[in-house]
Design a protein around this nucleic acid. Sequence first.
DNA 1: CACAATTGCTAAACATGTTAAGTAATTCAG
DNA 2: CTGAATTACTTAACATGTTTAGCAATTGTG
Lengths: 123, 123
Amino acid sequence: MGPIRALLSGAGLTEQQWRVLRVVQESGPIDPTQIADKACLLLPSLTRILQKLEEKQLISRERDKEDRRRQVVRIAPAGEKIITDNLEASLELMEQTRRKMGVERYEALLDLLNELDQIDLPE
Amino acid sequence: MGPIRALLSGAGLTEQQWRVLRVVQESGPIDPTQIADKACLLLPSLTRILQKLEEKQLISRERDKEDRRRQVVRIAPAGEKIITDNLEASLELMEQTRRKMGVERYEALLDLLNELDQIDLPE
DNA sequence: CACAATTGCTAAACATGTTAAGTAATTCAG
DNA sequence: CTGAATTACTTAACATGTTTAGCAATTGTG
């Protein structure tokens, strides 16, 4: 992730803030619990990240009207802009790593990591 | 690492503190730069960890007499005890994961991770 | 309906990762 | 030999991982 972090630091974002922003952008209005699930973050971490993103006005939050325990998170215009400004370069960097390592080996690595994750969860 | 963290929390240690302690125990008197290398830690992180381990009297530190920029870290008796009390269970937990995943797949995962590490470093 | 359990999130405390500066000791070039 | 690198750490600041508590809203049950 080193090169990607370098790219994002130019936009004033960390790796996780970027991941959360992308999840919100891709999924549309979404609640924090689902964001945490998709971005592989625990809720306490996400709480802080959402606070930062909201301060920077990259997202907006409001209470869910059906269930007032929940929130609805939406991406804000400034957030959209950061994504369009950086998504292409970010994907290219990932693609580079994938190619350098070899697509097959790369996929094998992801599979093995998922397997490890599955195996260790039940403990 | 979840189960191992649970084991170590009983001994009042974190995963990294344990890793550093083991490196010091295995290598004998050693300086922080080499510890950081073996334990895959950056020096700022290691500085704090050594401070904690020293507070707990699990290690001792002294200046190197040849080069006073350096330190020599040694394991203390209480540190030895923690290791003998926990090493076996810790190794057994790792072995379990290894077996559950399949020894071949496990080794393949380690190889692929090393490869990824090598590939991304030169960037 | 009242109350206990659950759910969704936040707060706080502690440990580490990461980067940038700072300090003291040592080395090296001119 | 002396001032400019370099080396070995340490400190500080910020972000996140992790665990444990806490609070408010909601749900389930008798």
